[in-house]
Amino acid sequence: MILEIVSPEVKLFSGEVTSITLPGVDGSFQILNNHAPIVSLLKKGIVKIEGTSFNFSKEATSKFTKVNDQTYTLAIESGTIEMKDNKAIILAD
């Protein structure tokens, strides 16, 4: 699936991923390829993205933490996610 992570200042990430784990207001949840359409609010926590290759913008590199070669995390204060047609967009604060 395609994932875009956007903050008010800059686009943090855009690329192909295999899964996303998110801090939802009602608990953590995971999105995989071909997930049903969803819009959800996010709370303060950690967004975990898994994939095979990552290309971060220069401005965003310091915001992500590398867990291993296929997993990175991003701390957020709040946000929203929209998943539709195998494309997820996270608007993160």
Rank of each mutant, 00 (worst) to 15 (best):
I2T: 13
L3G: 04
L3H: 06
E4C: 01
I5V: 12
V6Y: 04
S7A: 10
P8G: 10
P8M: 00
E9N: 11
E9W: 03
V10W: 13
K11E: 15
K11G: 01
S14C: 03
S14F: 07
E16N: 12
E16S: 11
E16C: 00
V17D: 03
V17W: 03
V17T: 07
T18F: 08
I20R: 00
T21Y: 05
T21L: 10
T21S: 14
L22W: 03
P23E: 11
P23L: 11
P23W: 09
G24N: 10
D26F: 00
D26V: 00
G27Q: 12
G27T: 08
S28H: 13
S28Y: 10
S28L: 05
F29V: 04
F29P: 04
Q30D: 11
I31M: 13
I31H: 02
N34F: 08
A36N: 09
A36R: 09
P37L: 07
P37F: 08
P37N: 11
I38G: 03
I38Q: 02
I38H: 01
I38P: 04
V39I: 15
L41E: 06
L41I: 03
K43R: 14
K43H: 08
K43E: 12
K43I: 05
I46Q: 15
V47C: 06
K48R: 14
K48Q: 14
I49V: 14
E50W: 00
E50Q: 13
G51L: 10
G51N: 02
S53G: 00
S53M: 07
S53I: 06
F54D: 02
F56Q: 01
S57V: 06
K58F: 08
A60V: 12
A60I: 11
T61N: 08
T61E: 14
T61K: 14
S62E: 11
K63W: 09
K63P: 00
K63H: 10
K63F: 14
F64I: 06
F64L: 08
K66M: 14
K66H: 12
V67S: 03
N68S: 12
N68D: 15
N68R: 10
N68E: 10
D69L: 02
Q70D: 13
Q70W: 02
Q70T: 15
Y72S: 10
Y72N: 08
Y72V: 13
T73P: 03
L74Y: 03
A75C: 03
A75T: 13
A75R: 08
A75G: 04
E77C: 05
S78M: 10
T80A: 13
T80P: 00
T80E: 00
T80D: 01
I81L: 10
I81N: 02
E82G: 05
M83S: 09
K84S: 15
K84G: 13
D85Y: 04
D85W: 02
K87C: 08
A88Q: 04
D93A: 12
D93F: 08
